[in-house]
Amino acid sequence: MNKKLVNISALLLLSLTAAAQDRPEPPSELSNPVAIVLLTVIIGLLIAIGILGSVVISAMDIYKDRIKKSGTVLTILLLLVAGQAMAQDTPAAKTTLINGLSQTSFYLLVSVIVLEIAVIISLLFTLRILVGIERKRRIKPVKEAVPGKPKISWLDKLNDTKSLDADSEADVDMGHDYDGIHELNNPTPPWWRYGFYCSILFAVVYLWRFQSAPTQAEELASAEAAAAEEKAEYLKLAANNIDEKSVKQLTDPADLAAAQKLFSTNCAPCHGPQGQGVVGPNLTDDYWLHGGKINDVFSTIKYGVADKGMKSWKDDFSPRQLAQLASYIKSIHGSNPPNPKEKQGILEQ
């Protein structure tokens, strides 16, 4: 009777998950590569559940006297799981896309997978209990009799580092002797082993994803686009929209102080700390190579004069900073610093 119950609940679960996998898929999403992978995983896991389930059931068959307890546990578990699967089916509004799938479909598919994994784990757990009991009884009746033997925790199971005592060490000794070095043949810890499998799985998925992932150039383009949008938003709000036509000379001491700081780190190497000129021309005399009006100075800084070695600063400074700098340069006019560079350009008062 119990067997039947289990069977029915397992079937119920199967049909529910099957329904769950079909329902959120409008035809267009079925062709999505992510959806296909997720569906494949779901089907694969379903098959595993089917196989495991039948194994568990036949294992139970053998131990009829013990079925009553574990059978009910399993049924409850399965029913619980099935209830969860139903709970997943509530439709949600389509908002953002994840890998080309709507959020709803994506999370639904993923939670089906999670659910399936949970079922598999619980089945495995049940199976382990059943088989474990049997093995212990048959092979190691002596050891079981040892009183006070500590229960193995899940952490130890995951770690599974055996041969802690001399007895079990002798069990796994390979019998090698290399210059006195002996070798045991302990199993590798399960977490390490499964970690390795996971990394291989990661590699396969990564390489497969690589087909459809954006290229480096596309990544850059989308980053640039997002940045341009942000900048446009900012400029709309800020009183920062200054260009060479609209620039006015600033006289606020705070502006000039800010400009002087920029000047000493960026301009001084070529124009001298006082603007007297070194490699670049003197900025304090009456002679100008590219115009001495505030608009001209602004424009020279902004766009540079490539063939004379003046670089364009428009990517380094904001329009406001360019205006500050141009105003600062206008403000040091006639300051007559020591060691001035010779006159260059046209006289402009």
């Binding site: 580092t161 070095i181 002996h182 070798e183 045991l184 302990n186 590798t188």
Partner: peptide, 9 residues
């Protein structure tokens, strides 16, 4: 001490 696991190596 003996090497922990030959198969691991």
């Amino acid at each position: 001490r003996p090497v922990y696991s030959y198969r691991w190596s």
